[in-house]
Simulated scan of single mutants.
Amino acid sequence: MATIRLSVVLASEARIGPGKAALLESMRDSGPISAAARSMAMDYKRAWTRLDSMNTAFDTPVVVAVPGGTRGSGAQLTSFGIELLARYRRLEATVAALATDDLAAIAARALPESSPKV
């Protein structure tokens, strides 16, 4: 089986790909960065660095800090962050749908994983 991993490279050379999209989804579902990172078996600093790189790549933040209450402070996706994630996932689905026949043709000629590679 073959898959496509879509990475969008911006003019600034910043990227958004499957890992950053998964992190945004995890934040959307889990809440704070620490919980999102834990759910992905990622350390907090790596998650924060990825989120910060997205924040600096766009003219609108993807994630913002939220003031603490009884649960303490945290961060959440902005409306732009939610839109960015939706647009990335839509691009990913479109590319996969358009490439189904080509992926199948490529996968049919690929050696099994256990075969020696040259």
Rank of each mutant, 00 (worst) to 15 (best):
Thr3Glu: 10
Leu6His: 08
Leu6Met: 11
Ser7Trp: 05
Val9Gly: 14
Leu10Val: 08
Glu13Val: 04
Glu13Gln: 12
Arg15Gly: 00
Arg15Val: 03
Ile16Gln: 02
Ile16Ala: 05
Ile16Lys: 03
Gly17Lys: 06
Pro18Gln: 15
Gly19Val: 00
Gly19Phe: 00
Lys20Ile: 04
Leu24Thr: 12
Glu25Pro: 08
Met27Trp: 04
Met27Gly: 04
Met27Leu: 14
Met27Tyr: 03
Arg28Ala: 13
Asp29Ala: 14
Ser30Lys: 15
Ser30Tyr: 11
Gly31Gln: 00
Gly31Ala: 01
Gly31Asp: 00
Pro32Thr: 05
Ile33Leu: 05
Ile33Met: 08
Ile33Tyr: 03
Ser34Arg: 12
Ala35Ser: 13
Ala36Trp: 01
Ser39Met: 09
Met40Gln: 12
Met40Arg: 15
Ala41Thr: 09
Met42Phe: 06
Met42Gly: 04
Asp43Leu: 00
Asp43Gln: 03
Tyr44Phe: 14
Tyr44Asn: 08
Tyr44Ala: 07
Lys45Trp: 06
Arg46Lys: 12
Arg46Met: 09
Ala47Glu: 02
Trp48Tyr: 05
Thr49Ile: 11
Asp52Asn: 15
Asp52Gly: 10
Asp52Cys: 08
Met54His: 07
Met54Lys: 06
Asn55Leu: 11
Thr56Lys: 15
Thr56Ser: 15
Ala57Asp: 11
Phe58Glu: 11
Asp59Gln: 12
Asp59Leu: 10
Asp59Arg: 12
Asp59Tyr: 09
Thr60Asp: 13
Pro61Asn: 14
Pro61Glu: 13
Val63Asn: 07
Val64Asn: 09
Val64Gly: 06
Val64Ala: 09
Ala65Pro: 13
Ala65Asn: 14
Val66Lys: 15
Gly68Ala: 04
Gly69Met: 03
Thr70Cys: 04
Ser73Ile: 02
Ser73Trp: 01
Ser73Glu: 07
Ser73Val: 02
Gly74Tyr: 03
Leu77Cys: 01
Thr78Ile: 11
Ser79Leu: 13
Ser79Cys: 08
Phe80Gly: 06
Ile82Leu: 14
Leu85Asp: 12
Leu85Ala: 13
Ala86Leu: 00
Arg87Val: 08
Arg87Trp: 03
Tyr88His: 01
Tyr88Ala: 00
Arg89Ile: 04
Arg89Lys: 12
Arg90Pro: 02
Ala93Pro: 05
Thr94Pro: 00
Val95Asn: 06
Ala97Ser: 14
Leu98Val: 03
Leu98Ser: 06
Ala99Pro: 06
Thr100Met: 12
Asp101Glu: 10
Asp102Cys: 10
Leu103Ser: 08
Ala104Ser: 04
Ala104Thr: 03
Ala104Arg: 02
Ala105Met: 02
Ala105His: 04
Ile106Cys: 10
Ile106Val: 15
Ala108Gln: 10
Ala110Phe: 08
Ala110Tyr: 07
Glu113Gln: 14
Glu113Asp: 14
Ser114Leu: 02
Ser114Ile: 02
Ser115Tyr: 15
Ser115Pro: 10
Pro116Trp: 08
Lys117Ser: 08
